[in-house]
């Protein structure tokens, strides 16, 4: 973890060679410190980390960075934690964020990534031929899908209306049926 605090311009040159290339560009950070995390320490449910996190949690010292699930694939991003801290993430290319990724774990506090719950649209097709057509259609539009038996789940990564608009002809024709509020719906 590295805290980016305001660096007087006169000193910026001195530190420039000690920092990774992109960080020597950071002396403009003036208003509030931005904390940079450049590695994942482990998973929150790892036994060795879990016990320490549990103790910190009792002291209300575990902060969370909530991210849309699609953003977990990013290796660089800026965000704000639940406690309101501005943070930046820049990971090596062989590391990837996940729900429960521990970014900081110290005596006085920790930061853990949490993936936001995802909305899924659920559709059932009237027969096998229509199911094939629906599957082809979703793949052609590069939608992310899951399967639950005979039900196709489509991840809502933009506005829900974007997906519904595209499927309206099949819905109106009675070829597919949207299943709403199904028990045990994926989240």
């Amino acid at each position: 973890m590295r805290i980016l605090t305001p660096i007087p311009l006169a000193q910026a040159q001195e530190v420039s060679h000690a920092l990774p290339p992109f960080l020597r560009l950071c002396p403009d950070v003036r208003a509030r410190p931005l904390t940079l995390y450049s590695r994942i320490l482990g998973a929150a449910d790892q036994p060795d980390l879990h016990d320490r996190l549990h103790r910190l949690d009792h002291a209300h010292a575990v902060d969370h960075l909530r991210l849309p699930r699609a953003d977990l694939a990013r290796r660089r991003l800026r965000g704000k934690t639940e406690a309101g801290r501005d943070v930046a993430i820049a990971l090596p290319r062989d590391q990837q964020l996940f729900d429960g990724a521990v970014l900081a774990l110290e005596d006085h506090g920790a930061l853990v990534v949490r993936a936001e719950a995802e909305d899924w649209l659920r559709f059932a097709a009237k027969d096998a031929a229509t199911a094939l057509r629906l599957g082809y259609f979703a793949g052609n539009l590069h939608w992310r899908v899951r399967f639950e038996g005979a039900v196709l789940l489509i991840a809502v990564e933009t506005g829900e209306h974007v997906y519904i608009e595209r499927l309206t002809p099949m819905i109106d024709a009675g070829d597919i049926t949207r299943i709403v509020d199904a028990p045990g719906a994926a989240s």
Binding site: F22, L23, V29, A31, R32, L34, R78, D86, A88
Partner: peptide, 8 residues
């Protein structure tokens, strides 16, 4: 957004 320059 990528080089983390500028104010938070």
């Amino acid at each position: 957004d990528l080089l983390f320059q500028g104010a938070a």
